[in-house]
Write a protein that binds this DNA or RNA. Structure first.
Lengths: 213, 213
DNA sequence: TAGATTGTTAATCGATTAACAATC
DNA sequence: TAGATTGTTAATCGATTAACAATC
């Protein structure tokens, strides 16, 4: 099976979101229009889609509804996913309260914390479980995706435990490298890294101006 | 000035973080060690650094403390940055409460919301301002970076207003495309997109297994 | 000096863009 | 049929990796 780049997958997600916006308003969409809305080129759009098959009609474009279904299939969104959140601090509880998650097909079925005061508390309609019961609860509730919102020190250990408990993918918000063993799918979202991307751009563009002057 | 790729900048941020961990513990570090810790290759590390100069000593490696300072300089972290958060919902207030931000050189000096009940409230030691006063407050407090944590519908307008008020970079958490005019630096962090990256990988790897069988 | 490790050039790999025949 | 737009191949561009002379 040919390898699909991460950036291609991101764009597919983006196309799907844009298609949902126009769904019901128009029947067909061209690679050109999808390109304008997504900031890609029309060639890019056609290429991305063609990695998985031919879904359009020459001379007409793509059927919006069809393409939505196709993309949902490709991205694995034809079903719901069972998610656990580990670490119910500020960020964790923000995520717990997110309606977006459930709308997009992700059911948060477990939440964990070390803090005894939080355990048992009801947050977003869900009991917070003790982190000590992680393995058991993960198994019982058949969690497939773990979201780590613990402090960085705790994150690698949590990742190991999630892995051993049978979770198959992790979305990590802690600013540390998470060691996943073979086959584990891991993504890290790192606020500081993104901010530093901004400050780099600001700083170097300013230097750029100066050196032009 | 040669273009530096976004991924190179991300790696530089990562190297910096790793260097801070070993600072005080060791004086020198090799590209090899930095590579192991970051998941890059040693050639990658040397190449990334060489985009900005020669900071190492052949046969010895890089001085940890020196390299930290150098990277801070490159990434624009030799100073503090003034940040505003727009949208004090769950995510916005989580960010407001983040000590990490201030530790990393980002001072949150303003927060905004549309909700009259939130305006005036003190959150993380900061008064929430009315969104109507955005332009004025941004100017008065000399905000340089805006963080958007509003619902998606509001985000594009907020981005425009931030831009016109003189903010030079935006970190956007809303799942929409933000139109920035020339020279504006924009990054979007999109939870749904990342999750869909996971489900894609899970789904296609499973399909992969099947097709091997 | 011998061993280690950088900085940089050249080779490779992969992703994006351009172009156009196929075809609705 | 004429016009539009796909799907795909070839060309280009950029990023990563390999290799090695320079040198600490």
């Amino acid at each position: 099976m040919k390898k699909i780049s991460e950036s291609a997958v991101r764009r597919l997600s983006l196309y799907l979101r844009l298609l949902r916006v126009v769904a019901g308003k128009q029947e067909l969409i061209s690679s050109q229009e999808l390109a304008e809305r997504s900031g890609a080129t029309s060639a890019q759009v056609r290429k991305d889609l063609s990695l998985f098959g031919s879904f359009g009609q020459r001379g007409r474009g793509y059927e919006v509804d069809d393409l939505i279904e196709t993309l949902e299939g490709i991205l694995g969104l034809g079903r719901r996913w069972r998610v656990a959140i580990v670490g119910v601090g500020k960020l964790g509880s923000a995520l717990l309260g997110y309606r977006e998650l459930s709308q997009r097909g992700f059911d948060v079925v477990a939440a964990f914390d070390v803090d005894a005061r939080k355990v048992g508390e009801k947050l977003g309609g869900l009991d917070v479980s003790d982190i000590d019961s992680l393995e058991r609860v993960i198994r019982e509730r058949e969690v497939e995706i773990g979201i780590i919102t613990t402090p960085p020190e705790a994150a690698p250990d949590v990742a190991d435990r999630l892995t051993r408990a049978g979770v198959s993918a992790i979305l990590n918000f802690a600013p540390v490298k998470i060691g996943g063993n073979e086959g584990m799918v891991i993504r890290t979202m790192d606020l500081a890294l993104e901010l530093e991307g901004l400050t780099f751009a600001l700083t170097s563009s300013r230097d750029g101006e100066r050196s032009h002057a």
